[in-house]
Design a protein around this nucleic acid. Structure first.
Lengths: 348, 348
DNA sequence: ATGAAAGCGCTAACAC
DNA sequence: GTGTTAGCGCTTTCAT
């Protein structure tokens, strides 16, 4: 059947535009992808036809031909209820926004939480996505190694802590710097006994953040012994840890590896009739909604997730370019500190 | 060029499998899509070849041929900072999970917040997605009407409040029932003066939720006059509204249209030295992370978002089936109540 | 039950 | 600068 005599079924195609503009299909393709190749008047005629028809290239056909999908795969985990952790929400939005500007959409997938590789393989083999953004590198990061082996383009949000020899591109936030920022802020306020509540030792991110605290303390010749605690990332753990530290080390301020832990500290203070901000200062990490709406307002380290997304997409574009543009292997961004009520000046 | 002599560039294709199994390409296609058509031994041979090669059908080719993408478009808004609203996070994950089980992936896009249609059009015209899930129906819902006109398959999360004549499929949570649940819970605890803090009158969702409160109160012959306030959805608005109500109407309990407003109430109580849960009860709406980690724990109405996702995907499958399966136009799900400290029994 | 032919809509390569 | 040819990998139709 001749394409010219088609019934108006489905969106217009290249052929429709070509016929209407009185040019060949290839010329229409060029008008869309390489406008410079056309003479001005031809271009105008084709563009008019495109506008008239409301033509947009069919994605599947273009994908098949160019062997790209302009899709970026992102695996998401269920939101952790009962915690204040909600980094993903902000990051996902930033990534979607930035990707759009670069001509990409974000394809979400989940996977068996026990199998970090689930989902990646199928998408890769079926050429459903051009690249991945890998976020859950804290699990030990087998995805990164695995994707690297398959030569799958990807950028990690998070450093390859466990694989010192890894060569893949990554973008991360300098947790140590963030915690140092928080600690310095407290020290500047006059605090001397600043405690740390962080995660268990097997968390590389936790240890990194912790190092920001020890560094800041030691730079002012302040001791850290007996002032630190390593616990699970739950509110109740934070509460107990704070209780023990208050009893045994009498800190006047707490820096925490997460807002979840910081909330635990606030609970412990309230139980003892201590006023957060006035009696004891507290700083959390992630600038969660909880930090923003709780009373008193929780000071917190904020990750520049918008900027992370920008760096990730820029890296991705380099990776996917032909020929691939050499990338800086890693980009480390510095967080900021949101000061709220819980780190007001010490009373008196 | 004969496909048989290909260099091992890129993933295996149908032709590769066919050659290895000694059958035609069509037979491989049938083995994948209509296994029943093959003789048992042929099927086994083909499946072995598929497994050996790690073959998975190329998405773009399949999409082009079948005119489907097995992608569901979802437009996301930026997380509202400074509020406790985080329904999206949980919903998105549920939707991705449920979609996967139905063979779909979720494609995320954003749009100009001032133009609710931005993004939809391009995806539709380029046949990038098979259907949409429309969530932000509270804005007045032009997307629904618009998509309906274009005969684009979609399901709305949220009723067509503004368009009584709308015929599209939707899934929603019965906010009135949720608030009635909360109010009854408080009345059962012995409260009689239960106040309502909700959104401005132009919010249909807000008015619906409010109706659950008036209904529950009136069912027990309790007055509502002077006990209600309609404000913006911010913590400070909730705080002021609670202050005014406490001064003028002396309620012993508050039901709020959101956790954000409920947090405002908690602030107001704390400022007055009143203890939430003991002196005055408070129930929020959304069961946000804030409700879960704040102290005292905030009782809250929880939307069954997992179930919403299941219903939406089921409806979508019906819509996309050939021939389309007739759908119930709307599905209304009932929320549950998470009881925490702020709605403990009245003291004494 | 299996194979051959055609074509989805697009773009890369080349001819004019 | 524009048109022609071919083919991406798959599935639908029809023949065997």
């Amino acid at each position: 059947m001749a394409r010219g005599a088609r019934t108006p079924s489905g969106p217009p195609t290249l052929a429709d535009v070509a016929e209407r503009a009185g040019v060949s299909r290839q010329t229409v393709s060029n008008a869309v992808n390489n406008p410079d190749l056309l003479r001005a008047d031809t271009l105008a005629r084709v563009q008019a036809a495109i506008a008239d028809l409301g033509y947009l290239p069919n994605r599947a056909a273009r994908n098949l031909r160019t062997r790209t999908s302009h899709l970026i795969g992102l695996r998401i985990q269920p939101a952790q209820e009962g915690t204040a952790n909600a980094t993903m929400d902000r990051f996902v939005h930033s990534l979607v926004e930035t990707s759009r500007e670069a001509g990409y959409h974000v394809l979400l997938f989940t996977g068996d939480p026990t199998d970090p590789l689930a989902g990646y393989d199928d998408l890769l083999r079926s050429t459903a996505v051009d690249a991945f953004v890998v976020t859950d590198t804290y699990l030990g990061n087998p995805q990164a190694m695995w994707l690297d082996q398959r030569r799958a383009p990807f950028v990690a949000f998070g450093r390859p802590w466990q694989q010192p020899g890894a060569t893949h591109a990554w973008v991360d936030v300098d947790g140590a710097a963030g915690v140092a920022l928080a600690t310095d802020h407290l020290l500047d306020k006059g605090h001397r006994r600043v405690a740390w509540i962080g995660w268990r030792k097997d968390s590389a991110i936790g240890e990194d953040r912790r190092s920001g605290w020890t560094r800041a303390m030691h730079l002012r010749d302040l001791p850290t012994t007996g002032l630190a605690s390593r616990v699970e990332d739950t509110v109740t753990s934070g509460r107990s840890a704070a209780g023990v530290l208050l009893d045994e080390a009498a800190p006047t301020a707490f820096v925490c590896a997460s807002d979840t832990l910081a909330m635990g500290v606030l609970h412990a203070l309230a139980e003892r009739g201590l006023r957060a901000g006035d009696d004891v200062a507290v700083v959390g990490f992630d600038d969660s909604q909880v930090a923003q709406v709780v009373r008193p307002g929780l000071s917190s380290v904020r990750q520049p997730l918008e900027q992370v997304a920008v760096e990730i997409v820029a890296t991705l574009e380099g990776l996917l370019a032909h020929p691939a543009v050499p990338q800086a292997q890693g980009v480390l961004l510095t967080p900021t500190l949101e000061v709220r009520d819980t780190s007001g000046p010490v009373r008196g």
